[in-house]
Nucleic acid binder design. Structure first.
Length: 307
DNA sequence: GAGCCGTGGTG
DNA sequence: TCACCAAGGCT
């Protein structure tokens, strides 16, 4: 399998800037933050602009968190921007401005969990670490375990399996991790896997079993009418303009009449927020959450991005 | 472990 | 149309 999958990878791998040998560990780290729950195609332009503007951790650390959140744009989960900023500050203050190479030190950074720490150690520093992301879990579930999809949460058995499957050689292990992840992203996809293109289809337990259906029905992510949706709409308003937005125009009735001084984009975003028809109480709760999380800041003239 | 946290593409 | 899904992390 090592040979089949890595050979396939050599031929099919996407040409991504954070995979270029010239990419700095910081570039790899930024990509890993942005790629958390976010597809590659949406990350690419934001990553390029980000690296252009803040080529080193210290460059980002010198900025306000609000600027980080604004540059994050519409990638989603804007708290990731806060965590990336906080990690940059920590790297600047405690690691001499360089992304640490040790898995343990990486894990201690804000926003860096088991996956991201392993990914940075492997892809930026060539370590032999076990990387387990959603793609790798799915490939293992199918090829080895014969199931359509992995369970909802990562199990100790999966971790053990991933360790056992990894090549002993350091350099090969790096490519293996990269290759299995890519296989899951391009061929062994969740919805409509392209088994005819798979380099290990003849060894796949799931194919051999006749591609049985998933045992667990996926749990849908509620969206319409949730606080998340309202939070997102408020964030869109704050990102759209630099001028503070009076809190009542965010949480109050539509006809509050406080549009003066706001950029046209901000007004459009404000219309979208009101268009949701969310109750005032919910909008206030959402705004409080954003303030508490540090995604928004309250000033004398209204609410804006922090900093 | 479950719930929460954004956004846009897609089958 | 609409639920599912995407290189997770934190509480």
């Amino acid at each position: 399998m090592h040979r089949a999958v890595t050979d396939w990878f050599d031929d099919a791998a996407r040409d991504l800037p954070w995979r270029d040998p010239s990419c700095s560990p910081w570039g790899v780290m930024v990509s890993e933050f942005m790629l958390q729950q976010t597809p590659v195609v949406r990350v690419l332009p934001v990553w390029r602009a980000w690296m252009q503007r803040w080529p080193r951790p210290a460059d980002l650390a010198a900025e306000s968190t609000g600027e980080a959140v604004r540059a994050w744009g519409r990638l989603g989960y804007p708290r990731r921007a806060l965590r990336l900023h906080a990690a940059a500050v920590e790297i600047t203050e405690h690691h001499g401005g360089r992304v640490p190479a040790a898995h343990e030190l990486l894990l201690a950074l804000p926003g860096v969990g088991a996956y991201t720490a392993a990914a940075i150690a492997v892809f930026a520093f060539g370590d032999r670490q076990t990387v387990v992301d959603t793609n790798i879990r799915r490939v293992h579930a199918r090829v080895v375990t014969g199931r359509a999809l992995p369970s909802r949460s990562l199990t100790a058995a999966e971790l053990r399996l991933a360790e056992e499957l990894m090549p002993a050689d350091d350099a090969l292990a790096v490519r293996w991790n990269q290759a299995v992840m890519e296989l899951g992203a391009l061929v062994c996809t969740a919805r409509s896997p392209r088994c005819e293109q798979c380099p290990v289809r003849d060894a796949c337990a799931w194919v051999a079993a006749g591609r049985p259906e998933p045992v667990e029905a996926p749990r849908g992510q509620a969206w319409h009418g949730t606080d998340r949706q309202v939070r997102g709409a408020i964030m869109a308003v704050l990102r759209a303009g630099s001028a503070p937005v009076p809190a009542p125009s965010l949480t109050g009735p539509v006809d509050v009449g406080t549009g003066a001084g706001l950029a046209p984009e901000a007004l459009r975003a404000l219309d979208a927020l009101h268009g949701l028809g969310a109750p005032e109480e919910q909008r206030r709760r959402a705004l409080d959450g954003l303030l508490r999380d540090g995604l928004a800041a309250a000033g004398p003239s209204g609410v804006s991005l922090p900093g």
